[in-house]
Design a protein around this nucleic acid. Structure first.
Length: 876
RNA sequence: GGGGGCAUAGCUCAGUUGGUUAGAGCGCAUGCUUCACAUGCAUGAGGUCACAGGUUCGAGUCCUGUUGUCCCCACCA
């Protein structure tokens, strides 16, 4: 086999490896009765969307979990799919048509849909290809689309069931209307922002009196639809006017003055114009006082024929003209600057109009209850659990969900109306042809579509074939974990919970792993307008997918936002490069040897046992962290082990053996190097799948693909706790010698002689060559009581030895005295701290025994150190 | 108005059920072209864990309050 390339270049192998995984069917989900299923539903990205950094994080997290579980032996389904994204997609197509100089109305429904599907065919594959670049190990053979036959069938069934139960109804209510997209929106789709506006004070004349009542409004044009003015019942200023009639200016209408508790006497003038058809609060007031509703605006935001002379004007032009007209009549009292929260369309950002409109709604209150209970009873668990509170907050305050959209791209509402008797007809599967009430055959289907989230809400089971009891559904449902961002909780998580419990009587997923947003270097949201977005595809191109993945999850706690920067990605790339080079080192040395395939029967040296012990600790911690979805911690542990323990220590410790003469020791060391490398690669695989798979292919005893190997297991036989701890003493010794040399500016290349007063002669002798090499020493001598003063040595006390390094001219005795005194001070501080703890009777009585013992041992240790340092000071 | 987050090294952030001398990356300082890697190695400086109380033998961690900051929801027309 060829050797590994000298430099790490992900472009050499990432695509090749992905193809290989696909070819070998590594991602395929199988119904295997002998295995435990583990299923994850990918949050479907918009079918015509492009991969952005937020997707990249979401996908990476899922892929890590899924690869981990697959290696642990679960039968994994990671279900991929894309969303038709009704409004988003239709918006794009409408824009395109506008550029072509036509409109959807001009094309007609059929032709428009033909174009929409063509658009979907053209761009629908793009995001899927981009997901592959990341290394996503989902079962592409099962790729679903919210508008495919399977999902559409589920939508129809779900609608039917809710309708039958009376939980879907049609009614005229105030909804959020986008005059640009010309559709209703749900409350969740409204984005509020503080906008600068005005507060116009208008005087309304009162019939049969010279008195006028002054109202204040931010939307003057809506006065054309006023049907009352309201004041607070206890407001003495207006008490005499309640029941009187207003001659509404600019119209020929007479409207009453009513008293209603909704009015805040402190705000504005204390008198409110009531426009039931154009304001949610006014709508309520209107119902209470049985006021007429006069809708004065068309769907496109222009004033309709009820607006008299203003008919046909755009809403903003109408606003100006109304103000002008009032001014001319001397009825404009004043204008104030006023900033207020205004709702905008989440898709096109147009200012929304609250409008009375006949729409379809889902009665959410009834449905919310089981969804609240399921989380309260821990049937579904949020990670981190604080998001359960946010979830409750949403569901407890939920209002009915407006599900109809005046769009064509989506699931057409499965309701037919009878031309004869006006009946609503809803059937679960087959389209009705005859009215069951009057036998009339003239039926027309509702023109509108469903909110895109209506189908997304069914995703965990619609993709598995529900309402059919398919084998997939039985095996993989409920799913195990849903991974998504906190911003999607109200849109999706909540609604999947509601639907899942309603239709399947089960929670749709057992865990919900919530992540935050990926922000830019300065903590700002990434946005197109700021141009501060990090393009994941560019990052992959430049650094490789593994670096991107690692950068996206390292140092990130669940649920928290994270910042992305070139520096962070480079740090990840550097680590992967490190792994690459360490692997090269091992393979280079293994080449041409008969390295044993396992550790069985080997006589392990202290350093070997130490690294294996550290490895086992890492395996345990990583496994635990992954189980708890602490992906950032898991990654940090692996990086820390691989870089510090393995590369900086064990590989360096192995060199004197590898370059030495003892062939048997060499074989053993190679076996350990290989074992640790292979185990580390497996641990790292879920995080950095490409590079680990590539390197694994070079390992002499590799079996197939790394992604199909067993995830490393903690083996108590390999824990070697005591030996590892003893060996830490050797490491501490080496570090101390290095520090001594630096402290006197001794060139690193200059070898020094070490003199050690120690009880650990055996351990030190066994590791002599390593100590010499790593500490930069020429020889070790053992002494009883240090060196004579004329030797001019620098000394340091460690756990296993009192070190003396004679450095002759380099040593300044005065400086050495200062250094030792400083050290003495530190040790005395420790003695005082431990001493005060141990003299506290409450500590002795109440703290765990182990802790007390540890504290005693510590005190003992520091007392010995103190003695040695004092002796040395006397000696100087 | 309601809900939630955050405050730890110069910067960005970890810190599992309270328990060694509070960690990492980046940055900084000093020194290293040692045969895997300068995308590197070694050594080091740098923290009253926002503030004030409390619980506890013991608090960065739990409780109460304060301050600052960010987000979500509601929406006084």
């Amino acid at each position: 086999m060829e050797d590994m390339q000298k430099t790490y270049d992900p472009k050499d192998f990432e695509d090749k490896i992905y193809s290989k995984w696909v070819e070998k069917g590594c991602f395929k989900a199988k119904i295997d009765p002998d295995k435990v299923p583990f299923s994850v539903m990918m949050p479907p990205p918009n079918v015509t969307g492009q991969l952005h950094i937020g997707h990249a994080m979401d996908e990476t997290m899922q892929d890590i979990v899924v690869r981990f579980k697959r290696m642990q032996g679960y039968s994994v389904l990671w279900q991929p799919g894309v969303d038709h994204a009704s409004l988003a997609t239709e918006h794009k197509i409408v824009e395109k048509l506008r550029a072509e100089g036509t409109t959807k109305e001009a094309l007609g429904r059929e032709e428009f849909l033909r174009r929409a599907w063509a658009w979907k065919e053209q761009y629908g594959g793009r995001i899927v290809e981009q997901l592959k670049k990341l290394g996503s190990s989902c079962d592409w053979d099962r790729l679903a689309f919210t508008m495919d036959e399977k999902c559409s069938r589920a939508v129809r069934e779900a609608f039917f069931r809710l309708y039958e139960a009376g939980l879907i109804y049609r009614g005229s209510r105030i909804i959020n209307w986008c005059p640009d997209c010309k559709t209703a929106l749900s409350d969740e789709e409204v984005v509020y922002s503080e906008d600068a506006g005005h507060f116009w004070h208008f005087a309304y004349p009162i019939e049969g009196s010279d008195e006028k009542i002054v109202i204040a409004t931010t939307r003057p044009e809506t006065m054309l639809g006023d049907t009352a003015v309201a004041v607070h019942p206890d407001d003495k200023r207006y008490a005499h006017l309640v029941g009187k009639t207003i001659l509404l200016p600019l119209t020929d209408r007479k409207i009453p003055i009513v008293a209603d508790g909704y009015v805040d006497p402190e705000f504005g003038t204390g008198a409110v114009k009531i426009t039931p058809a154009h304001d949610p609060n006014d709508f309520e007031v209107g119902l209470r006082h049985k006021l007429p509703m006069i809708r004065v605006m068309n769907d496109d935001g222009t004033i309709n024929e009820l607006g008299g002379e203003f008919a046909g004007l755009d809403r903003y032009e109408a606003r100006e003209r109304v103000v002008e007209a009032m001014k001319t009549r001397g009825l404009l009292v004043k204008v104030e600057a006023h900033t207020h929260n205004v709702g905008h369309c989440h898709r096109c950002n147009a200012t929304l109009e609250p409008i009375v409109s006949k729409q379809w709604f889902v009665a959410m209150r009834t449905l919310a209850k089981p969804a609240i209970d399921a989380v309260a009873k821990n049937k579904t668990k949020f990670t981190p659990d604080r998001f359960a509170k946010i979830y409750y907050n949403w569901l407890e305050n939920i209002r009915d969900w407006c599900i109809s959209r005046q769009l064509w791209w989506g699931h057409r509402i499965p309701v037919w109306y009878c031309a004869n008797c006006g009946a609503e007809i809803v059937t679960p599967r087959v389209d009705p042809t005859v009215c069951p009430h009057c036998n009339c055959t003239e039926l027309t289907q509702d023109e509108d579509c469903l909110d895109t989230w209506f189908s997304s809400a069914l995703w965990p089971f619609s993709t598995l074939g529900w309402p059919e009891e398919t084998p997939e559904f039985k095996y993989f449902y409920p799913t195990d974990v849903l991974v998504t961002g906190y911003d999607i909780i109200p849109f999706w998580v909540m609604r999947m919970m509601v639907s899942g419990l309603r239709y399947t009587k089960k929670v749709p997923f057992r865990d919900v792993l919530i992540h935050g947003l990926v922000r830019d270097e300065q903590g700002r949201k990434m946005s197109k307008s700021l141009g501060n977005g990090v393009d994941p595809l560019e990052v992959i191109e430049k650094y490789g997918a593994d670096s991107l993945r690692l950068a996206l999850i390292s140092g990130v706690a669940p649920g928290n936002d994270t910042r992305m920067s070139a520096a962070k990605i480079e740090a990840s790339r550097n680590f992967i490069n490190k792994v690459w080079n360490a692997s090269r080192f091992v393979l280079m040395n293994v080449k041409g040897t008969d390295v044993p395939p396992s550790l069985d029967g080997l006589h392990l040296q202290p350093a070997d046992r130490w690294i294996i012990s550290r490895l086992m600790a890492t395996v345990r911690e990583v496994t635990l962290a992954l189980k708890k979805y602490d992906l950032g911690i898991a990654a940090d542990r692996i990086v820390d082990f691989a870089w510090n323990d393995f590369c900086d220590w064990y590989i360096e410790l192995s060199k004197p053996v590898l370059y030495g003469e003892d062939q048997e020791k060499k074989r053993q060391t190679l076996a350990v190097l290989l074992f640790v490398l292979e185990t580390t690669l497996k641990l790292l695989h879920p995080f950095a799948p490409f590079v680990t798979e590539e390197i694994y292919g070079y390992l002499p005893h590799a079996k197939g693909m790394i992604m199909m190997q067993d995830f490393p297991r903690y083996d108590p036989k390999l824990a070697y706790r005591e030996e590892a701890k003893a060996f830490e003493g050797v490491i501490e010794l080496i570090k101390a010698v290095r520090a001594i040399k630096v402290s006197v500016n001794c060139p690193p290349a200059k070898k020094v002689r070490l003199y050690l007063a120690t009880d650990a002669k055996r351990l030190i002798t066994a590791n002599k060559n390593s100590i010499l090499r790593l500490a930069g020493a020429s020889d070790i001598g053992f002494v009883e009581n240090g060196l004579p003063a004329e030797e001019k040595a620098v000394s340091q006390v460690t756990d296993i030895a009192h070190i003396f390094v004679p450095l002759g001219e380099l040593v300044d005795l005065e400086e050495e005295r200062v250094r030792l005194n400083k050290e003495l001070e530190r040790v005395q501080g420790e003695i005082a701290r431990a001493g005060s703890k141990l003299s506290n009777q409450n500590f002795i009585a109440k703290a765990p025994k182990k802790l007390v013992e540890d504290e005693r041992a510590k005190l003992e240790k520091f007392l010995v150190m103190k003695k040695k340092i004092e002796d040395q000071l006397k000696n100087l």
